[in-house]
Amino acid sequence: MTSDVTTGTGQEPAGLARRTGAELLRRVEDRLRSLLAAERDAWAGVDERAVVPIDALAELIESGGKRIRPAFCITGYLAAGGDPEAPGIVAVGAALEMLHLSALVHDDVLDDSSHRRGLPTVHTRHTALHDSSGWQGEARRYGEGVAILVGDLALVYSGELMSQAPKPALPEWNKLRSEVMIGQYMDVHAAAAFSVDPRLSRLIAKIKSGRYTIHRPLVVGATAAGRSDLAPAFEEYGEAVGEAFQLRDDLLDAFGDSADTGKPTGLDFTQHKMTLLLGWAMQRDERIHALITEPGHTADEVRRRLVDTGVPADVEKHIDALVERGCKAIADAPVDQVWRGELTDMARRVAYRNA
């Protein structure tokens, strides 16, 4: 496979460009599995119990996931003319996915979520193990402690992988990591305060999810290829499409099917997440605040009230506007048309996905 797809000549078809990206994603997948397999082999010789956190991460990898962050990173890299045969971009993609695993495991503790990708979450599984084994101490505290350590281990592995990346990508990587942590704190704080502030809800969605999912991975990929000049266009695209991605998540949490999403629905209600969906709805109907915070009310009651406000339909319109804005931003980006088309397709896929 040659690197002509990524040189901006405009001579290669979109199909070949997409296959190049798919091949790099496959190599990312192999890198994740080989790292965890090597770690397991090393620790199994120390003590059989030492492999438990590694196995927890391996199970998450095997359970699927959309690999959105590596996909955007690789697309940014190829759009910037990066060599698909260079080894660094595979390490970067794997680092992004490992960082995401860390965030997922910790997020499940913060949200008290029982399932992820159709399987019991790490803290739920180890809480149950402690309980059934009759061990000392508090079962829930044990389960959450294990999950925190599993998430921290993924964070360590992400750093190890990123140490193999092209150095120009590191500053953007560091911004990405700090943003997701600060965004998570702001999300936790907003849930505790649970005051109506749509401006803050949008800011949290951008920092915690949008930049971390789309904007920063794109720029990490472009800078790894030596094209930091693409940062402004990728920022405008990523901010818009990233917000659309998070709004779709909000709608899926409120109205989706857990069989499709692989996790419980209605968590934003039970955890008092001040999403833009809820913020807008509570501006129109004060009763929604009580339905969520007072005991004795069901998620179905909240859903019916949300629909009555008309806000879900308005959120859909807002997603449409954000996708249009993102597509317009990328239409003027100084990259080959094949990659402008691919990023346009990716914007629509993440904004209008069902799960």
Rank of each mutant, 00 (worst) to 15 (best):
H115W: 09
D30R: 14
A222N: 11
R325Y: 05
P87L: 06
L176A: 11
D108A: 05
L16D: 15
R304F: 06
N174H: 14
V180I: 15
P84C: 09
A281Y: 10
D107C: 08
A58W: 07
G10V: 14
E59S: 13
S163C: 06
G310M: 05
I74C: 00
Q164H: 12
A139W: 10
T213Q: 11
D47L: 10
A259P: 06
Y77S: 00
V146I: 14
S178H: 14
I319T: 03
I54D: 02
L110Y: 10
D250Y: 08
R26N: 09
K175L: 15
H189N: 13
T9M: 13
P87Y: 07
G183Y: 12
A329N: 02
S201F: 09
L267T: 12
E62S: 15
E179R: 14
G242N: 12
R140S: 09
P53A: 04
V105R: 00
T293H: 05
F234W: 05
S114L: 13
D30K: 07
L267A: 02
D41E: 13
D308L: 09
P217D: 04
R141G: 07
T121L: 01
S178W: 09
G341I: 04
L149C: 09
T275I: 13
G76P: 04
A38M: 07
E48H: 11
R116I: 00
A91T: 05
L155R: 00
T7Q: 15
V150D: 02
T261W: 00
K208W: 11
E316D: 05
A355R: 15
V307A: 09
W135P: 00
L25C: 05
R19L: 14
Q337S: 13
V51H: 04
G310Q: 08
R325S: 14
A192G: 13
L203E: 13
I214K: 05
P166C: 08
I148H: 11
Y157G: 03
G310D: 08
N174V: 14
A205W: 12
R199D: 13
A225T: 10
A58C: 01
A254G: 02
R248E: 06
L153G: 00
Y77Q: 03
A71P: 01
D257W: 04
P87G: 01
P171H: 10
E236T: 15
I61Y: 08
Q246K: 08
E160Y: 00
T213G: 07
I61G: 01
A281K: 05
G210Y: 12
K208V: 02
R177F: 10
L252N: 08
A313F: 06
Q246G: 08
E236C: 12
A231P: 10
L252T: 10
A193W: 13
A355C: 09
G81W: 03
G242H: 07
L101F: 01
K206N: 10
L161N: 01
Q184W: 13
T213H: 07
G82E: 02
A190F: 10
D229L: 10
R40T: 06
V122D: 00
F269E: 10
L247Y: 12
I207E: 06
V180E: 09
P120E: 05
D257E: 15
A37D: 14
V241T: 01
F269T: 00
S163V: 02
